[in-house]
Design a protein around this nucleic acid. Structure first.
Length: 428
DNA sequence: TCTGGGGTCCTAGGACCC
DNA sequence: TCTGGGGTCCTAGGACCC
């Protein structure tokens, strides 16, 4: 019997436009016609630009201090990143999407894949894309673009083109092969999902410059020369779905909490405070996903940009005899690590804590040498987390201290409009 | 003065075993 | 002195993503 062809799958990628910048503009209608940028932690780099700021050719990722004069001259509004605000708006966007489509994979803070295969409530997927756009605009005031295709990689690429070419009005469906050809031929290979700077260099050397040329490469050869990952990309570009929609969010396999300091740290006490805070954040995240860590690492480093003094950085890690998520246990361990690698002298610019080799609390009983954490510890930690959820920083381990020069710079922080009663926007 | 943070996956190479 | 071949497991590092 002849095999029936598999029904083609359909994916959509919904991506918020200039997400952080759009979030800031949402609560500042007075800035509607002004260029706006958002800075990274510590007000270091520019990590988001609104459309007007992009027109001014303000580059992504540029150090803020180098562009200060230009920004001022062009009257660009500047904001520190406000993750409380972006995180809250993100979850509202995702909830809206979940009402519009049965299967949603939250891919990042501002992107989600939807599975549209077998949706019969609308014949025309472009219309459905427009429906998503208008719904989110109406309900949340945020602009999004929608890319549609038979694989995730093509949906991504469609989204890129939907943003780039105004004639698509924010929605592009690349289901039709002839349409695909046209767009792929005009898309530089480095714009393909999974092709970064290094790979692009190698591909260029092989005269592969466009997405279409990559799509026409032989997957076996690509596999041999590069990796299974890029071979999969080739297949995906040809409409062969190799990547599935991941609806369930798996627990993280490692949790990092790290930060550059507001000012250089030379004093061990200040370093202890900072590390203590990072550790608490990491442990909170660990407990939130009901995990325990077996491995703990710490790194400290000076600045890579410092010309006058040599770079110094070191790291250390340890295995816990019993996996844990108890802040007190982890604090003690991380301080031991610091004692090991601390060197007086360097001006430290950054430090971080990594929890890895994670396992779920549930089901640990079966492991002979890993008894589950004590009731008492779990209850105490749960109480601390609850209190801190209500009011950030109300309970902390004494070593953290209250403030220090090392703390993050956020000179241009907007209010937490949507997550704190005392910072609700006022209507006058 | 001032240059982000948090993830995942794959691969190469060493340790170790038979 | 000479000194196989293959397997697994682990980790570090590099590439990518947002």
């Amino acid at each position: 019997m002849a095999k029936l062809p598999l029904p083609e799958r359909r994916f959509a990628l919904v991506d918020c436009n200039n997400f952080y910048a759009s979030c800031e503009k949402l609560f500042r209608p007075d800035l509607k016609h002004r260029p706006l940028v958002v800075l990274s932690n510590n007000d270091g780099c520019i990590i988001a630009r609104c459309a007007l700021a992009k027109q001014l050719a303000i580059p992504m990722g540029a150090p803020f201090h180098q562009l200060k004069a230009l920004l001022k001259q062009q009257q660009v509004a500047v904001f520190s990143s406000n993750y409380a605000l972006y995180g809250d708006l993100s979850s509202r966007v995702m909830q809206t999407l979940e009402q519009l489509a049965p299967k949603v994979e939250i891919y990042s803070i501002d992107e989600a894949f939807l599975e549209l295969s077998g949706l019969d409530f609308c014949q025309n997927l472009s219309d459905f894309g427009q429906h998503i756009r208008t719904t989110i605009k109406q309900q949340l005031g945020l602009p999004v673009c929608v890319g549609i295709g038979p694989s995730k990689t093509l949906a991504k690429l469609a989204n890129y083109a939907a943003k780039k070419y105004p004639q698509f009005e924010g929605v592009l469906d690349l289901s039709e092969p002839h349409k695909r050809l046209h767009i792929l031929a005009r898309t530089p290979v480095q714009e393909v999902w999974g092709v970064g700077r290094k790979l692009a260099e190698h591909l260029h050397a092989m005269k592969i410059e466009t997405a279409l040329q990559l799509a026409r490469a032989c997957p076996q050869q690509i596999r041999k020369k590069f990796s299974v990952v890029l071979a999969r990309t080739v297949n995906e570009l040809n409409g062969l779905a190799c990547l599935a929609l991941d609806e369930v969010q798996e627990p993280k396999q490692q949790i990092i909490s790290s930060r550059s300091f507001g000012q250089r740290v030379t004093d061990k006490g200040a370093m202890q405070q900072a590390i203590s805070l990072y550790l608490s954040r990491a442990a909170e995240k660990l407990r939130a996903q009901q995990s325990l860590a077996r491995r703990l690492s710490l790194f400290i480093r000076s600045s890579r940009f410092e010309q006058k003094t040599p770079f110094f950085g070191d790291q250390a890690c340890l295995e816990l005899t019993t996996p844990s998520n108890d802040s007190r246990v982890l604090q003690q361990a991380v301080m031991q690590l610091l004692d090991k690698i601390w060197r007086q002298g360097p001006a430290y610019a950054k430090a971080g804590v990594v929890l890895s080799d994670l396992c779920a609390i549930q089901g640990l009983q079966s492991q002979l040498f890993a008894p589950p954490p004590s009731e008492r510890s779990q209850r105490l930690m749960a109480t601390i987390d609850q209190l801190n959820q209500k009011h950030r920083g109300s309970v902390f381990i004494a070593r953290q201290g209250k403030d220090g020069d090392w703390q993050m710079q956020q000179k241009f922080l907007s209010p937490a409009y949507t997550t704190r009663w005392d910072q609700l926007p006022e209507v006058r």
